[in-house]
Design a protein around this nucleic acid. Sequence first.
RNA 1: GCGCCUGUAGCUCAGCUGGACAGAGCAACGGACUUCUAAUCCGUGGGUCGCAGGUUCGAAUCCUGCCAGGCGCGCCA
Length: 555
Amino acid sequence: MQVKEIIRRLLTQAAAQAKAAGALDFPELPPFELETPKLPEHGDVAANLALVLASRAKKPPRQIAQALIQHLEAPEGLLARVEVAGPGFINFFIRDSWWFQVIEEIHRLGSTYGSAELGAGRRVQVEFVSANPTGPLHIGHGRGAALGDVLANLLAAVGYQVEREYYINDVGNQIQTLGRSLYVRLRQLLGEELEFPEDGYRGEYIFDLARQYREAGHPLPGPEPEEEDLLALGRWAADAILAGIRQDLDDFGVHFDAWFSETSLYEQGWVERAFAALKEAGFLYEQDGALWFAASRFGDDKDRVVRRRTGATTYFASDIAYHLHKATRGYDLMVDLWGADHHGYVPRLRAAAEALGFSERLRILLVQLVSLLRHGEPVAMTTRGGTFVTLREVLEEVGKDAARFLFLTRRADAHLDFDLEVAKQQNAENPVYYVQYAHARLASVFRQPEAPDLMGAEPDPALWPLLKEPEELELVKRLAAFPETVEAAARLLEPHRLTYYLTELAGQLHSYYYKHRFISEDRELSRARLWLVAAVKTVLARGLALLGVTAPESM
RNA sequence: GCGCCUGUAGCUCAGCUGGACAGAGCAACGGACUUCUAAUCCGUGGGUCGCAGGUUCGAAUCCUGCCAGGCGCGCCA
């Protein structure tokens, strides 16, 4: 069990004991924090229970802290000492020997160390990327892909049953626009001078598609194409683009459990079902020939059209239906990952979720945009203008590992500067290699011929007192913090916590490696150190696996 | 004009959702390779946490108002 969990229980019991003994009086135990203090003088774990209890128990915090300590019944071997400090913190100093147990735990649990049962098998769906099939994925989609994928990994690690889903906007006039763009490019390939549509997709990839279309020997619509012809062209193009997107994601290490087609919502009557549900709840009305959802009743700026005067439904209508469909599938939690340029859309979807009663199960995460740089200079990126950097180009230039890791070095809601040159550099400026190198270094240690013989099959707790170096204790404490890091990253939906943790762990390892030889004349000490760094290697590998980054045996 | 995100060291960013003297990497400067991988390590300098108020035992963190940057504000998707 985690040290903080144990201490939380001890304090809760102590409070109850103190209350029973009449030493303290309070109605109910308030929530309190356990933190790892920055300063070693403040111990390994600090509790603010006495501070938050002060007003309820009507006593000075330090006095409460004393009372709590007196009723503390700690297990043998856990605590070196407990102190009241500052305004009333209770500082716990854990025995070194207790920390070293984590080496055995990691050996026992192997690659499941860091897993938890927080999710208790509840179902969670993560919907991400969901880029329109009108062009290849660009670097911003890559960030969303990395974030969503790792979020899903983390949630799975803490006991959720996770599904990854990609929502395909394959309805509407964008497919037609795509078809028209392709059509014009096709005619232009034949040498005809046709004006490109104002709202067309100007990317070079449309030419590529046109060439593919011809090479495959598909029929070319005549000079006056019917709407149906353009739609058919658009569908063909969307399919081809989607195939490319799947390939890109595959190469990026992102695999979806489901690809959900917007069209299927119409085919299966979900849009009408959503309208009916909203109407029944009294949030749907007609005005100016259009059908409106009363979003303003739920805090949105204004009401929103779901069916236009023309009879065509809006994108929003599809989205309501889609989320109703998701909610009906029975997920306990639905996580949506959107580009920050869609943030204005959040209030209206939230409104619909509230109107339909699944708002509490829906979490919408915004991923801020990525600014692409090269040598510190901005690289222009616009979808329609045609000069953008695709995810594929980034993958080919910097590789999957560097791209994934760098995408996860920022909070999702912070802008990200992604410098292609830095991503390619293989030095300390590039944290991915720093972490991978730590793993490779350890792998090389275990390749030493004497290593297996020195270690034996099982770690022996009697060895730990030999680990007297400060670096060793620090390392073991860091290892012990891995489960809570994974848990926090999953609970707060913040994968960047893991990349920071791994960078720190790798740093401590590098430092330790440099100062002390693991394999030496002293066989017992070597044995102890090898088991310690074996645990480090296991945690590095697990952490990198959660990030979807390879843990190389050599570099 | 309104809304969302951001503002922390020269640069890029963390800061455990209110805790104890504000952290890391890079850049700068100075050191360490006959060693289990130097893609590494050790040391030095560097901050009025955008500004001004407020809340309280305690604020980078919460509230209000300004300032600056980014992104949005369709019967588009």
